[in-house]
Design a protein around this nucleic acid. Structure first.
Length: 467
RNA sequence: GCGCCGGUAGCUCAAUUGGCAGAGCAUUUGACUCUUAAUCAACAGGUUCCGGGUUCAAGUCCCGGCCGGCGCACCA
């Protein structure tokens, strides 16, 4: 059989399995179908041959007989991994396996390499990540995790749409990297002879759309940060960022917990999930605890952003954290929380009330001028989302950017740069607005029960091979 | 970036103290009319990641490099 350019396929393996579940052993349905997929196993027995064929829905056995099957010899010599299109009757073999009894068939493509050990699959991480196409055939779990990631993104998108959010796209090539604290990737546009940075966050663009009258917007897209690679960090990752005019951070927390719990419900059917062998609750409402309270609990005494810096520095030193000269009390408080309590936050929880010092785009808390109306959600000891009531005052925003510029001058190479276009946008009037960012890879990890971010990214960033 | 661990046939893995590089699956050939990782028989398959070094002898020990896993750091 030579290969074909096309195949008229009219049935999926999984549908056959369910539609003919009642077919008894040795019974023939009288129905002819055309299926296509890849050969995963092939067992020849003299003038019979049995093959396991997999398509995107599942698996079904192909049953070939020399008396029935065209080109039987060639069929029985197909290779594992070959793509075939088959026409034949749906039957159940005497031994009870639902099968398509092959009348005619065509090889659609030939596999020149195998897909790993048929028991063990492919275990080598390097091979799995560099050749995901082979990994997907060899390992059920890889297929499942990437499928779940897709379901997570779909669910997030549909839930945002259903709440009246408009999906938008903002520039990836940015003249200045802003909206977050991170090192950027740099590139160059030849015709414009201009330096550009790949975005580290879409935040400022999205708020400019709110200024423009899009009261509810969101963007799902790739962000790029020139930081270390780890089981929880890929240089390019996917975020959901979303803004709602007239909301404050409490409204946004409610939205966030319902979104995440809803995604779990959509994909897994429950908000009480199992993660890495341990029960984890995403059920609403999530606990809300202030960073001040958590840091105090962590160090065993009352601390706050009003505690003298020298004392906070001492408490950090006791935990082997060396305070940088540019850190004020706010940053020290956050570091104390990070060093003591962050990794213990297992069930979904909101941490609220971040210091102004570390929140240059968030609106101050009217009850404490050194804190903001900000939250981060945590699950499995990791940050899952970040949101706040947006700072809308252009004068204060300029002062906050200038504070960041001073940090940069003091050696903090991740401090934010002044964005004049954004300040001008604020001068046209941003209504009271709350914003949210969610790391979708992190969310996908949680839902797919994966501990390595690479398992939920089809083609993770790897070091190019060289000698 | 730092530390620990790893890289052996196409795939999954062995190889004792430094002593002839092996198995299963896949591939190739043959047998087999209800198999289920089919089974049975046979053939073939190697730059032991790369480059040096020590040694009578290196997959194994030492040095350098490449790639990966985990931890730390940075961050989401």
């Amino acid at each position: 059989m030579t290969s074909s350019y096309q195949f008229d396929h009219n049935a999926f393996a999984a549908d056959l399995q369910s539609n003919y579940a009642a077919l008894s052993d040795g019974e023939e349905s009288g129905v002819r179908v055309r299926v296509a997929g890849r050969l995963m196993l092939l067992r020849r027995q003299g003038k019979l041959a049995f093959a396991t064929m997999r398509d995107s829905s599942g698996e079904v056995q192909l049953f070939a007989l020399s008396q029935v099957t065209e080109e039987f010899e060639a069929f029985s010599k197909l290779h594992l991994g070959d793509w075939v299109g088959v026409e034949g009757e749906v039957v159940r073999t005497k031994r009870g396996e639902l099968s398509v009894k092959v009348a005619t068939w065509v090889r659609l493509a030939e596999a020149l390499h195998n897909f790993g050990d048929k028991w063990a699959g492919i275990a080598d991480f390097d091979l799995r990540y560099r050749h995901r196409e082979a990994d997907l055939w060899a390992n059920d779990l890889s297929r499942r995790s990437l499928l779940r990631r897709s379901q997570v993104v779909r669910s997030v998108r549909e839930r945002c749409w259903s709440q009246g959010f408009v999906e938008v796209e903002t520039p990836i090539l940015n003249p200045i990297p802003t909206g977050a604290a991170a090192r950027p990737f740099k590139t160059h546009h030849n015709a414009l002879d201009a330096e550009f940075f790949l975005r580290i966050a879409p935040e400022l663009w999205l708020k400019r759309l709110v200024v423009g009258g899009f009261e509810r917007v969101f963007e799902i897209g790739r962000l790029f940060r020139n930081e270390g690679v780890s089981p929880r960090h890929n240089p390019e990752f996917t975020s959901l960022e979303l803004y709602a005019a007239y909301w404050n951070y409490e409204d946004m927390m409610t939205f966030t917990e319902e979104l995440v719990a809803g995604v779990a419900l959509d994909v897994l059917g429950t908000t009480e999930i199992e993660y890495q062998g341990r029960q984890l609750s995403l059920s609403t409402p999530w606990a809300r605890r202030s960073m001040t309270e958590l840091a105090s609990e962590g160090v065993g005494e009352e601390v706050s952003v009003h505690t003298p810096r020298a004392h906070l520095v001492k408490l950090l030193a006791e935990r082997d954290v060396e305070a940088h000269a540019s850190w004020g009390p706010g940053r020290c408080l956050e570091e104390l929380f990070g060093a003591t309590m962050e990794s213990t936050l297992w069930d979904a929880v909101f941490v609220t009330g971040h210091p102004v010092e570390i929140s240059p785009l968030a609106r101050r808390d009217p009850n404490d001028e050194l804190l903001t109306q900000r939250f981060e959600s945590y699950a499995a000891g990791r940050e899952l989302s970040n949101g706040f009531t947006e700072l809308i005052d252009p004068v204060e925003q300029r002062a906050r950017f200038e504070d960041q510029a001073r940090l940069a001058a003091a050696g903090d190479d991740e401090a934010m740069i002044i964005d004049e276009d954004y300040l001008r946008a604020l001068e046209w009037g941003l209504p009271p607005t709350a914003g949210l960012g969610v790391g979708l890879d992190r969310l996908a990890m949680l839902i797919a029960d994966e501990s390595n971010i690479r398992e939920v990214i089809a083609f993770p960033t790897l070091k190019p091979l060289r000698d």
